[in-house]
């Protein structure tokens, strides 16, 4: 019985590698995707590809979102299993707070500016 527990220990020692196991191909895939996802937004803005500002903004924001996901998966090794799911749960919680902070601030302050008295508008945006 004690021998069994000893074996268990050795197994632990051997498998002590904390954190996720990463691979060369994973890093390279993430890196190539990142270069692609960085270069295109810069090209869109520097080359004045679209005449409409809103189109460009929407596209580069979409590219940023995809690139953040790529970094999360290939560089930070996010998945639903690590640490019993707690990293993913805390990430989701943070993203919810992030969304509330950003959307709430922009929404409230935009309406403040729009609904301000005309005499005060000159000082605002």
């Amino acid at each position: 019985m004690s021998e069994l527990s000893h074996n268990h220990d050795e197994h632990h020692d051997h498998h002590e590698e904390e954190g996720p196991h990463s691979s060369f191909s994973g890093y390279m895939l993430g890196f190539m995707a990142s270069i692609f996802l960085t270069a295109i937004p810069f090209w869109l803005v520097m080359g004045d590809v679209f005449s409409s500002r809103n189109t460009t903004v929407l596209i580069i924001l979409a590219f940023a979102l995809v690139q953040i996901l790529v970094h999360m998966v290939y560089f930070l090794h996010m998945n639903f299993q690590s640490e019993g799911g707690w990293t993913m749960l805390s990430l989701i919680f943070t993203v919810v707070l992030l969304f509330i902070t950003l959307a709430g601030s922009l929404w409230v302050m935009y309406h403040m500016n729009v609904n301000m008295m005309p005499s005060m508008m000159s000082g605002g945006s």
């Binding site: 960085t38 937004p41 810069f42 803005v45 500002r53 460009t56 903004v57 580069i60 924001l61 590219f63 940023a64 690139q67 953040i68 970094h71 999360m72 560089f75 930070l76």
Partner: peptide, 20 residues
Amino acid sequence: HFLDVVWIGVFTIVYLMGSL
């Protein structure tokens, strides 16, 4: 890697959108 993720937001929202 986290700092790199934050930088994605910075260059997109501050620099690229600011230049537009």
